[in-house]
Structure formats: C-alpha cells, structure tokens
C-alpha cells in the first residue's frame, strides 16, 4: 500500500505522466505475451514425466504428469503459483505486494540452522490448493 504521511515516509508522489490508453498502447502486447507464456508453462507442466523417487523440490524436478491436477505432493511450488494467480483477478489493488506476501515465509523467529533445501520462491509449507484447476 502506498505510504501515507508517516513521520519518515516520503511525500505522496504526483500522478504518473501517462494515461491508460497511452499505457495500453505501449505495454499491452508484451503483457499479452507474458500471459501466454504463463499459460504455456502450465500446459508444459501437464506434459511432464512423473518424477523419479529421489527427486525433490529444488533439485530440478520436472514435476509430474498432469501437474495442475496431480502435482507431486511434496513440492509446494505449483500449488503456490496457482494460488497466486487467483490474486490477479480478484479486483483488489496492490496485486504485486499481495502476491509477494503470499509467497513469503509466514514465520517470524530466526532458525537454529540454515535449511539444507534451497530457497524455492514459495513458503516451504505451502498448503495445497483445494479448488479445482
């Protein structure tokens, strides 16, 4: 959410120097392409082979066949991505911040030791989707 007038917050910035039609003329096609890239990525996930028994999150696992419905239960990435996509169309502002919050570790205490697993880009304990996709 944009900063309001808190003691150390910057002054409210002026409105951006462009209109919606100007923005769409300049940036619509690149973002249409990104949407298609995302759709194609999910289709690609659906076509993947089942993972080998020893493959796990962060080890380059390609996922599993029909990943959007039967993704490997131990890999939180695809369910988290699908959950985040839903935030794009909920008609509320600050979509970027809310997606980043949804993809953040919700805990607050420092860890006793560094985890063996690499960062994945989603919380390690992300709950699987319960909705149909």
């Amino acid at each position: 959410m944009p900063a309001e007038h808190k003691p150390n917050a910057p002054a409210t910035p002026p409105a951006p120097p462009y209109t919606l039609p100007q923005l769409l003329d300049r940036d619509f096609l690149p973002h249409r392409a990104k949407l298609l890239d995302l759709a194609a990525f999910l289709d690609r996930c659906d076509r993947t082979q089942p993972p080998s028994p020893r493959e796990g999150p962060g080890e380059g696992a390609p996922g599993s066949g029909n990943a959007t419905t039967d993704s490997a239960p131990t890999d939180p990435r695809l369910p988290a991505l699908l959950s985040a996509i839903a935030l794009l169309t909920d008609n509320h502002p600050n979509r970027t911040q809310r997606i980043l919050d949804a993809l953040s570790d919700p805990t607050t205490d420092p860890l006793n030791a560094a985890p063996q697993s690499p960062v994945l880009g989603v919380p390690q304990n992300h709950a699987p989707l319960t909705t149909d996709h």
Partner: peptide, 13 residues
C-alpha cells in the same frame, strides 16, 4: 536482504 520467500521475514529481523 534475503532472497525470495525469506525476504519479508529477514527484512523485519
């Protein structure tokens, strides 16, 4: 500040 899912928590710490 930390990467990806660790950033928000790490920034607060």
């Amino acid at each position: 500040t930390p990467h990806l899912e660790d950033k928000r928590k790490g920034t607060k710490l």
